[in-house]
Amino acid sequence: MTGVEGIKRIIPHRFPVLLVDRVSEVDPGRTLVAHKAISGRESCYEGLADDADHAYPIGLLLESWAQCAVLLTRWESPNPDVLADKVELITGIRGVSLLAPVYPGDVLTHHVRLVREVDDAAILAGHSVVGGRTVLEVGTFTMARRGVEVLRPQRGVVA
């Protein structure tokens, strides 16, 4: 069982966008299971109208799953600091089904499977479950690692 302290030793994401609470199972290079509890205290709910939809934003739901993908690919080669290593970037997703909205009080269980990894790129797939119900399916998730020096925005370019 790996909590937030252990997760911070493996991936570079930090508050307020570290969206994984606990890793419960890992088979390095193959699969990982991790959990994230959704809270009504998260900043996405700040100022939200009382009668607004309180479903957890899809961007945060998907980012939480994606951080589990980074955890699996970095389990045996941790990257807690992008300046000392490389930046973890999403390059594509395909076949993502959003089967049911999730709400504060729900605990997401993310399942991630490594499909293929080559040099600084990886392909993963998986799904997420709340209380036995599948809420998210991720057909294909592709990611890449790039050094900060090749990513810095070009300064002085006329906008």
Partner: peptide
């Protein structure tokens, strides 16, 4: 938090 020392918007936030 994304990332300390090298701020970029998470790609999935663009989807949001």
């Amino acid at each position: 938090g994304h990332y300390p020392g090298f701020p970029i918007l998470p790609g999935l936030f663009v989807v949001q």
